[in-house]
Amino acid sequence: MTLDINTIVEILSGFCLLIGSFLCISGGVGILRFPDFYTRMHAVGVTDTLAAGMILVGLMLQNPDALVVIKLLMILVMTLFINPTASHALAKAAFHNGLMPVLDDTEILNSKERNKTTDNDLEPK
C-alpha cells in the first residue's frame, strides 16, 4: 500500500492542528493556574507564539490556493510582530504602576519607595 502525497499532507495538517489546540488549552489553563500577573503573562506567550503558529501552519496545509496561504502567512507574521510589543507595553505599565511580582526568594530590587507612591493606582477605578 502506498501513501499518496495528499494523504500525507492531510495527516500533517491534522497533527499541526492537534498540537495547536493542545497548546491553546494549555495557555488557557495556565492563565487560570499561575499565581500572579507576570507569570500569567508567560502562559499567554505560549498561546500567542507556538499555538497560533501551529494552527495557522495547519490551515496552510489544508488549502493549496497561493493567495490564501500568503494571507495566512501575513496573519502569522503580524501576530508574531505585534504580540511581543503588546505584552511588553502591558508589563511596563504594570511595573511602573508598582505591581510587584511574586518571587521565590525575597531579594527584590530596591523599589519600595516607588511602590509606596503609586500603590493606589493598582485598584481599577
Partner: peptide
C-alpha cells in the same frame, strides 16, 4: 488587578483572530 483583565482581553483578541481564520 486591572492588568490581569487587560491581559485576558489581549489573549481573547488573539484567539478571536485564530477563531476567524
Amino acid at each position: 488587578t486591572l492588568y490581569d483583565r487587560i491581559l485576558a482581553v489581549n489573549m481573547f483578541g488573539t484567539k478571536t483572530v485564530l477563531l476567524l481564520s
